[in-house]
Design a protein around this nucleic acid. Structure first.
Lengths: 298, 298
DNA sequence: ATCCTTATACTCGAATTGAGTATATTTATG
DNA sequence: CATAAATATACTCAATTCGAGTATAAGGAT
């Protein structure tokens, strides 16, 4: 087999925190790029390399870290091919000073259509006409658009963030598509663009995280040590992009051994809520255990 | 940032087929290695590179292809670091001639404890004593072992194939651990070893495939054009490693729009069964749609 | 004392699930 | 040819889960 070639490898990180009821992502260049850096020689493993590098650059300790996807750049210069390995990392947003153009951004700035917590945002109205034009051009597009955007009465599936972004890209309804020279089909969907394929990587991270929280208790990496059941619910709703039924949520959580009471109460308006922490077993296993959250769809 | 270095990239493929009621994986060296090859310059994308290379080498057309994981070799020679990108590919086992040491192997030869279709194989009896010794050495090991191997009355979770292999490796209960100089804790678990980390990659593939078949109709890449409901059930049981309730399986499958009748009947002993094929919509979307199979665990 | 706000508890019917039994239609066998 | 064996298909039923709602408790603010 011939054609093996030297290659340049880079790590791209999607660092996620939740604060003020919004999921945030750590960005460079005033929100237009994800943090990235070359794979360095000293690193034991890719994951260790990423942790080390993020902690040095941002001062944030990463809790859960998960590999997302590896991309190869097809048409880079003769100088050598480039491979990007992307990661999702969870942390708590601390008020540490951030360097010049480093900032936390609400991830729904990039994907407004993914936030369905408040009803009737009218976002679909912006997207649907362009989508309709694209669908009419070929026969096999209909069912894909229907499934991704729940066009008929079908239920919205929050895990399809990546599929939806890819569809909008193919349909020429995001700026990146126009930038890459693809045909457009109308006004761009709302939401701001990013460098290269960074918005696609962010969509991958959202899809993955939304899928992960359903069966593994990774949310605890995003919450403070103590929290109320409503805090937990709001955190999950922020990530999932839709609201949950309070009573059913509590029933499911309390039916498991996920949490334990701290014995203290939260203050604030209204009746004080019990404070909880994740149970010792869960903390020891660092999110290895299984969980059930009321997000699975029939 | 310094330390960027040229890197060698290689693709490793886990090619899976199901025949004679057993999940098979394509191997080299009489079953001790997975097919692997360097990333070549002509390839558009990693996935295209893999398809191209597998089809040229084996004559098998890959249906569903899914990226598994990217590893970096930490302690390779000064000559340059190596990155391995592993993929899962599904195909049908055809009777094409295979080269010298290329062969299809039942994947349960490598993971006998993962096949729970026949009850009481006694495999657990071989593993449990060593596991018990390992658990006793540190406090936080108990719950992990319990969860992975369903030690108390907990239900067996078939998706944990990778976690179980990793635990056995850490516990020094597989040959690869001894080979890598780790302490052993008793007799090795049954199952044959592979080169380097290939058995770990195979475990990753099994975990991923077992998780995937629950919500995406990828099985259709493994079955012939027409098949009976029992064929479909047996295929899924082979992959999942446990049996399903026939009536409930049929109820769930027929309650969806997954299949359509061909109008013909299968022959053989007993009452002839209706032949089905996957519905046109499913085939068109090439496994993009959602499905439900009776495998999800409470 | 009353209102507002949030927490917590409980209810109830619909839907799903797990496990079982009964019947139909073919091939093999004496 | 009658019967057994094997397989397919259909139906039943109770337990559990789920979605959505109502009711009550406990704090602060006015």
């Amino acid at each position: 087999m011939s054609g093996a070639q030297p290659i340049h490898a880079e790590l791209i990180a999607v660092i996620v925190a939740v604060s003020d009821g919004a999921p945030k992502v750590l960005t460079l260049s005033d929100g237009s790029a994800l943090p990235a850096g070359p794979l360095e020689s000293g690193h034991q493993s890719l994951q260790a390399g990423l942790r080390n590098w993020v902690e040095r650059q941002t001062g944030h300790t990463l809790g859960h870290v998960e590999q997302l996807y590896t991309f190869a750049d097809p048409d880079r210069s003769r100088a050598g091919r480039s491979i990007s390995i992307s990661y999702l990392g969870l942390t708590r947003e601390t008020r540490t000073k951030l360097g010049g153009q480093v900032s936390w951004q609400d991830w729904y700035r990039y994907f407004p259509w993914e936030d369905r917590r408040a009803p009737a945002t009218g976002i679909d109205l912006t997207i649907k006409p362009g989508l309709a034009r694209w669908v009419d051009e070929a026969a096999d597009r209909q069912s894909r658009a229907v499934r991704c955007f729940a066009l008929d009465g079908a239920p919205w599936n929050e895990d399809l963030t990546l599929s939806r972004y890819e569809l909008l890209y193919e349909a020429g309804l995001v700026r990146e598509a126009a930038r890459d020279g693809r045909p457009v089909h109308g006004d761009f969907a709302p939401g701001i663009a990013m460098t290269a394929d960074h918005r696609r990587i962010l969509a991958t991270a959202i899809s993955r995280l939304r899928a992960t929280i359903k069966y593994r208790p990774v949310v605890f990496e995003l919450l403070p040590d103590q929290f109320t059941l409503l805090d937990l619910q709001h955190c999950i709703e922020a990530l999932a992009g839709h609201t949950l039924h309070k009573g059913n949520f509590r029933r499911l959580i309390e039916g498991q051994t996920l949490l334990e009471e701290t014995g203290t109460l939260a203050s604030g308006p209204g009746r004080p809520a019990k404070l909880f922490r994740f149970s010792a077993a869960i903390r020891a296993e660092r999110a290895q255990a299984g969980t059930r959250l009321p997000l699975a769809r029939p």
